[in-house]
Amino acid sequence: MMQSAADMPVWAAIAVAFFLLIGSGLALIGAIGFMRLPTFYERIHAPTLGTSWGIGGIMLASMIFFTVSSGRLVFHELLIGIFVTVTTPITFMLLARAALHRDRAEGNGNVPDKPNRSQPAREVLGESDPRRG
């Protein structure tokens, strides 16, 4: 039996509001970062706020709300969390590698080259990126 949102016990309302604010706040910060950060490689970090605890907070809030208001355990939101977490890296790497490819082809500054195959691998690996400093 569904209760209306106004009949929820106070503790549940507080928990739901808390997680909703956390989740939506992080998604908002992610969006702001997406706009404000200066380079592409920095910008791709911002939306991961929304896909990690952004979705996590909203998911928890939804689970608590519907579990309390319907009086039975509701947790199929977990599926959304799992699928978002598993699929994000795919889009993410696709975008990042496209950017890397473009920057390498055009010689845009500070992108690390593909590791040099003719040298022994370990020597190349230790080096850090020229971008620092």
Partner: peptide, 28 residues
């Protein structure tokens, strides 16, 4: 490992080179 590093904000998995077995990351 790629999913873990990508879903952790601040580190991004860019490409894995299976010849050298190295991964290129970008860190915020």
């Amino acid at each position: 490992l790629a999913v873990v590093l990508t879903s952790t904000p601040g580190s991004a998995w860019l490409e894995y080179d299976s010849n050298d077995r190295t991964v290129l990351l970008h860190v915020l």
